[in-house]
């Protein structure tokens, strides 16, 4: 069942990475929650690239936009909590990857495509979003939750084997 073949130190390193990504997600969610009237509209409306019509459609539909906003806020918070606590870690990590992928395709960094939302740093195709996405991929395929996290308890309680 436990497929990790990592040593203790390696597992600790992975848990630290997981917790930090979780922290980042959680605060992104909480900060948006606390900002009165926060809306994804600003980010979405600047969407460029092949998917931009979809994001534009979202921005132009107040009802859909409201749902997207709520999903984004609570998604971020839930994923953040999951990653920090190591609870349903794999689900949280996959959901996190999907969310980040959405952010990325909203404003992809194609070569020669220099307009994008002002960002700190310099990037060519790969930006911090993609790095975080790759890190979540690592989290997905290593069961850090069963090393340090509620998953360990849940697993013992509910898994037969």
């Amino acid at each position: 069942m436990n497929e990790n073949k990592f040593g203790r130190l390696q597992m600790i390193a992975l848990v630290i990475m997981r917790v930090m990504i979780g922290w980042h997600f959680l605060y992104e969610g909480v900060a948006k929650f606390m900002k009165p009237g926060w809306s994804a509209a600003g980010y979405l409306s600047q969407s460029k690239g092949i998917f931009s019509p979809i994001f534009e459609w979202i921005t132009n539909n107040p009802d859909i936009l409201a749902i997207v906003n709520q999903m984004n806020i609570w998604g971020l918070i839930a994923i953040g909590l999951g990653l920090i606590m190591g609870c349903f870690t794999r689900i949280a990590a996959v959901a996190g990857m999907l969310l980040i992928l959405l952010y990325y395709v909203c404003n992809p960094l194609f070569v020669g495509f220099y307009y994008s939302i002002p960002m700190e740093g310099n990037y060519m195709i790969v930006n911090k979003n993609l790095v975080e996405l790759a890190a979540l991929f690592v989290i997905t395929v290593t069961s850090t939750g069963q090393f340090a996290g509620l998953d360990r308890i849940l697993h013992k309680l509910f898994c037969k084997k």
Partner: peptide, 30 residues
């Protein structure tokens, strides 16, 4: 599979204090 030892508890909740830290930092920020 059903028994939880002390170690499971400790490691299962090992990252919980991070939430406390998060809460503290958040309060400071607010």
């Amino acid at each position: 599979g059903k028994t939880l030892d002390r170690r499971d508890f400790l490691q299962g909740l090992a990252t919980a204090p991070v939430l406390g830290l998060f809460g503290y930092a958040l309060k400071k920020e607010i």
